[in-house]
Amino acid sequence: MVGEKIKAIRMEKGITAKELAEKADVTPGYISQIERNLISPSLAVLMRIAEAAEVPLVSLFSEDEKTEVVVTTKEKRTKIRFPDTNIEYQFLTPYSRSKEVCTQMEIIYYKISPKSWGSPCIQSHEAAESTYVLKGSLEYHIRDEVYAVNEGDCIYVPPNTPHQLYNPGEEDVEAIGVIAPAFY
């Protein structure tokens, strides 16, 4: 569970719950509740915790570190649905809990529910992002522009570009996203 991973990472790094809480801008009691799996933190809080612990976000969900050639079968994909998003992620590439060992890119298969935003807030990250739409139509809201990415289309978004995804359709959007370098 996420709470156990956060505690394990915190302990590995020698960080107290109070120090992690201060860096992540939450209370020590909130960290304690997360670590004991009593609450499900939002994506925004998980991102702050990962940043405070200096690990990729996906490491909060990882099983084992991979530093060699790896085949990820459909059944073994890491699947994540954050409580405050309408996206289901399936990680197609391996990842690591260490920024020094993490892959150069992250490839993610994801779905966004109909008539919904991928996340409640605008995202911006230091990685370049590219998305290929497998099914449906996806809107990328970037600054004051809306880019329609239809089935079979691809979009590239440079690093540090604020953006938000929206599914305007009546069915799930299915897409493959590539993020390089990996930041999850």
Rank of each mutant, 00 (worst) to 15 (best):
W117H: 03
A127Q: 06
K18A: 15
R81N: 13
A24K: 04
I155T: 00
Q164C: 12
P41D: 11
K7D: 13
Y95L: 06
G29K: 10
L43H: 03
A50V: 06
I31W: 05
K74V: 15
Q123N: 06
I112V: 05
R81M: 14
D172N: 03
P162E: 10
Q104L: 15
I15H: 09
E68D: 11
M1P: 13
T72A: 15
V173Y: 02
V101S: 15
Y30F: 03
E75C: 09
Y147D: 01
K5N: 13
Q90I: 06
P114V: 07
N167K: 02
A17Y: 14
P158T: 04
K66F: 13
H163Q: 11
D172R: 00
T85S: 09
R77G: 07
G14V: 12
Y132W: 07
E19C: 06
D64Q: 11
R36W: 08
I39R: 06
P83L: 15
V70W: 14
T131W: 03
T85L: 13
A182P: 01
G177I: 08
T103I: 13
M1E: 14
K79T: 11
W117G: 03
I9D: 10
S116K: 14
D64N: 14
P168L: 02
S130Q: 05
K7R: 13
G118Q: 01
S119G: 05
T67E: 13
L134K: 00
P159E: 12
E106N: 02
E151Q: 01
S124V: 10
A182V: 05
L20N: 08
M47T: 10
A128I: 12
P159G: 13
V45D: 05
P159T: 12
A44L: 10
R10T: 13
V149Q: 02
K135T: 00
E19K: 04
